[in-house]
């Protein structure tokens, strides 16, 4: 299929594809912002053990984590307008990007809510108790003690999700959304140089992913500065306090 391979097409395609980068990044950013919102709302009933809502959010999370993103795109694109028809709202003229962003937001929300739960659980209960014991209320303990540490813990989770989302947006072309991958399809069809479009495309995704990864890594290091150990104390004493058996002064409890 297609014409003979020609490297010049790769160079030619890169700027053409890059002119659609903003749409790709827009989808990623919008779905992460909405995903954060959804993720927070969904994590709350599970963290605070709210009876019925807890079940609902569990079902939501396992559905969006357990089904392929492609199917979710189709379900949202074809299913949501049907639902709205029931209440006599016509969505047939709505921009395809709306459905794309909705799908990716719901998808990200499920992962983010799990991330939030893991991160919040990652902050020891003892620190919360210490916060209460110095007289803080629940809100102060959450914002001053849990949140800053949970954020640091969740950076790698968030980084993975962002990069996965970036790559997943390439599936939006199946609904006819004109982002980078969609554009590559039209370029390929027009020139019959498909391989070159794919090479150009993969180069772009690769560079952006790498840059994002580095950026997140930097943020993580900044947020986790309190975990860095000084060399002079080092691991020895920490390990020892875990394993070291009291020898003299401490009297073992009976029983």
């Amino acid at each position: 299929m297609g014409k003979k391979f020609d490297i010049n097409y790769v160079l030619d395609f890169i700027p053409k594809l890059l002119s659609y980068l903003d749409i790709t990044l827009f989808i990623v950013t919008a779905s992460l912002v909405f995903g954060l919102l959804i993720g927070f709302l969904v994590a709350l009933p599970r963290m605070y053990n709210v009876p019925v809502l807890k079940r609902v959010s569990q079902v939501y999370v396992s559905f969006f984590r357990g089904t392929p993103i492609l199917i979710q795109l189709f379900l949202v694109y074809y299913g949501v307008p049907e639902l709205f028809k029931l209440v006599n709202i016509d969505l047939s003229r709505t921009d395809v990007l709306v459905f794309v962003i909705l799908s990716y937001s719901l998808h990200s929300g499920a992962f983010i809510s799990e991330g939030i739960r893991a991160a919040v659980n990652g902050v020891e209960r003892g620190q919360v108790e210490a916060a209460y014991s110095v007289g803080m209320n629940g809100f102060q303990a959450f914002t001053r003690i849990i949140l800053p540490q949970a954020l640091a813990i969740s950076v790698p989770i968030f980084a993975n999700l962002t990069i996965a989302n970036l790559k997943d947006t390439s599936l939006a072309f199946t609904l006819g959304a004109m982002e980078m991958t969609g554009k590559s399809q039209t370029l390929g069809t027009a020139t019959q140089h498909f391989i070159e479009t794919y090479i150009a495309l993969s180069l772009i995704y690769f560079v952006i992913s790498t840059v994002l990864e580095r950026a997140f890594h930097y943020v993580e290091r900044r947020l986790l500065k309190h975990e860095k150990q000084l060399v002079q104390h080092g691991h020895r004493s920490r390990k020892r306090s875990l394993w070291g058996k009291p020898l003299v002064t401490r009297i073992e409890e009976g029983g």
Binding site: G126, A130, I145, H226, E227
Partner: peptide, 9 residues
């Protein structure tokens, strides 16, 4: 506290 429970950050 027994395990200090300092604010780690």
């Amino acid at each position: 506290f027994q395990h200090y429970n300092l604010f780690k950050h």
